[in-house]
Each structure stands twice: as C-alpha cells, then as structure tokens.
Design a binder for these strands. Sequence first.
DNA 1: ACCTGAACACCGTTCAAGT
DNA 2: ACCTGAACACCGTTCAAGT
Lengths: 229, 229
Amino acid sequence: MPSATSAAADSHPAGARPRRRAGRPPAAVLDQDTITTAALRLVRKSGYEGFTMAALARTLNVAPSALYNHVASKREVLVLIQDHLTSFVDVSAFDTESWDQAVRDWAWSYREVFSKHTPLIPVIAVLPVADAPKTLAMYEAVSAGFRRTGFPQERIISAIVALESFIFGSAYDVTAPADIFDSGSMAASTPNFTSAVERLARQGLESPADAAFSLGLEALIAGFGALRR
Amino acid sequence: MPSATSAAADSHPAGARPRRRAGRPPAAVLDQDTITTAALRLVRKSGYEGFTMAALARTLNVAPSALYNHVASKREVLVLIQDHLTSFVDVSAFDTESWDQAVRDWAWSYREVFSKHTPLIPVIAVLPVADAPKTLAMYEAVSAGFRRTGFPQERIISAIVALESFIFGSAYDVTAPADIFDSGSMAASTPNFTSAVERLARQGLESPADAAFSLGLEALIAGFGALRR
DNA sequence: ACCTGAACACCGTTCAAGT
DNA sequence: ACCTGAACACCGTTCAAGT
C-alpha cells in the first residue's frame, strides 16, 4: 500500500506542463487525501448505497481502475474516511473540563459523528490503531485524560474500549425506525415489554435513542469514576 | 411477504406422489424454517463471505430464483437467522437468580451468540421487534425481570437498549485482531496510550475483549441497580 | 403454487497496453 | 509513475415459461 500523501505533486518543469485538452473538466491529481475528500463528499450526497468505486472514480474524472494505483481496495477507502471523520470527534473537553464532563462531551460527540456513518462501524471496530493515525491521536488524548484523573493504569484501555463499544452500538440506535418497539399483533403475549414501551413513550421528551444513551453513559461514567484513586 | 411456516406441506393424494427422479438427491420442501436451518448451517460452514443466495440454493438443491417464492430478499434471510439465533440466548437466570446475576448471565450469553455473527448486527440493531418474534420473546423475559426487581417502568426500555448497544459493540471486539492496540511506529508520539496498552498486557489474564466487557457490564449493572425502588 | 433457466443491472478488481 | 479500456468473476433479483 502506498504511504501517506505524495503531495509534492506536479513536478513538470515550468514551461512543459501538459496542456489541458478542451471540453473535459480538469482531472484532479489523485492522491489519498483527494480520494478521501471526494469519498466523504460522495457519501454525504449519495449515502453508502451510492458509494461505489465506479461512482467515486466518476466524481474524480478518472477510470475506476485508476483508483487502485492509490488504494488497495474499497475497504481501504472506508478506513481513510473513518480516520478522517475521527478528527471531527471533539476531545477538547479533556483539557478544559472535569473528567466526568470530558467523558460525557467526548462520548456524545463520538456518537454524533458516527451515527451518520454506521456502515463504517464494522470496519472501525476491528481496525488496528496503526492503520488510523488520527484515531490513534484521539485515543492518546482520551488516555491522557484518564491518566490525569488518577484512573488505574491497567484499566484505562478496557474502560475506553467499553465506552467505545457502547458508543458504536448506540450509534445504530440513532438510525432505527420510529416503530422499532411496536410489537403489533404480538402485544397481548408480551405485556411487560409492551407496557414498558408505553411508559417510555408517555414521557418522551428525548428520543428513545437519546434516553438510552444518556442512561447508559451516566452509569458508565459513575461506575468508572469510582475506580479513580 | 409470506407469513410464517406453511408446514402442512405435501398435500398430494396418497397414491399420486410425484416419483422421485433417479440420480438427484431429494429436493427439500422449501419453507422459511427449512431455509433458515440451511442458511445457518451454511454460515457456520462458510462464514458470511460464503453466504450467497446461490450457495444457499445449492445446499437446498433448488435454483436461486426458487428462494424468492419464500423470502423477499437476502436481508429477510438474515433476519430469519437473527431471530433463530436469539432463541439460543439464555434468559433463564431471570427466573432463578438475583436481578444482578440474571443481567450478567443474559448479557454474556447474548454477546457469546452474536460475536460469531457480527455481520447480523447492523440488521438487528435497527430491526422492528414485530419482524422478529423470538427476539420479542427475549425482550419480554428481560422486561419482566426488570419489572419484578422494582426497576422504574419508564426506564426499562432505555436500560435494555443501553445494555444491548453495549453488547453489540462488544461482540465486535471479540473478533478484533490481536494487534489491534499495537501503535507500531507511532508509539513514541502516543505515550499515554502506549503505556496503558502495556499495563493491560502485563496483567493479561482475560482477553482484552473480555476485560473490557466485564468492566463495562459491571458498571452498567451497578448503575442501573441503584435505580430500583 | 412453486419451480427452472435465462437474463438484467450491477459489483469490486485485475491487467495489458499505452503515455 | 500512473492512466485507460476491456475483461473477469462474481453478486442479488426479476420474470416468462413451464408443471
């Protein structure tokens, strides 16, 4: 796999640039950054159903096969998108707020970013950190925050992984259809579940996804907070 | 979509059964149960990469197009597998153990079942309960357990959803490669993360996935347990 | 009612041939 | 070094034609 950006780019001697042929929009210089940006724009416009290598190539005015000079597979493009998105996750609260509030802010921001990109979750969840430098930088910021608050060192990774697992699972909930808890014709045979769903709906200030996320996150923060020393 | 099993099956008058042609294994009578069983067997043998409608049809000795008389799509087959697998999740502890222990047993069992079927998670996570009767039965058993322990009714669904989100996210971790936390050449620039990874490895009785799951689950049980009245 | 076989409209990816 | 165009080996799904 080609490494990072070969951003030096256009190395033609000043007068000898190849003339642009009329009638075609200029083909962008392909590199991993350009591909990542175009891929994210395409996903935002067309969703992950519309995100194909052919469609991506079209937005870059190249043949699909040209992409394979810069990435090894479609999965690698997904990894590039994932890592880029992670830089939008806000870890700044670890520098300015209490540990509790920092974890809270980070977790909500993390869920927010990936709830619009759930097809990436199966990729992220099993991706070696070495393949995603910005993601690694996020872990470093969070690890530092845990360390500063006196969190037991040997449990820092486990706590972060647990929070992340909860966040990924919760990101799916955000995209669930409104009728997900509607037991329909089976309501009579599931009285406890059905009445619990009604009780939830009767409150219903937050969305069900937000209520569950808030409840679980506060339990995790409280439970982990008690481990500090 | 065709409803449930049309299991009455072979309705030929006694003497008039169509003769089996020599040389071919008998084609199974197709119905949703038969398809589900064959699909699960195929997944266990070939994984989800090898699970195609053509391969499924082959194991049933029918043409791929025949499947579409019984299911609307490949996604529907995945839903059938999902619901069938859910009947393997053990909820029995809600009848025999304390609430704490019941949640613990249920959660470990749930993660265990789906850690071998992570490609189903994107499907399950957003599936209306009405489309999965066995899954609904599981929710009923868990809801009843929460109710019996005095859990506030309006929070039962949120608590279950939060636990489930954590379980789904954690199921992915089970399948992660061993080097997932290896920061490689970036180790020097991520000292807090890297030392936390080393501290975890130095302990290392449980797998990292089990350690994170245990830590998060106990925090959720403790936090939710405090809400009972 | 439910099957087959052929076809459709795609996929991701490879590779020889060019410049 | 990096592009194009053609080809490959698949996918899931549809549908006319059969019984």
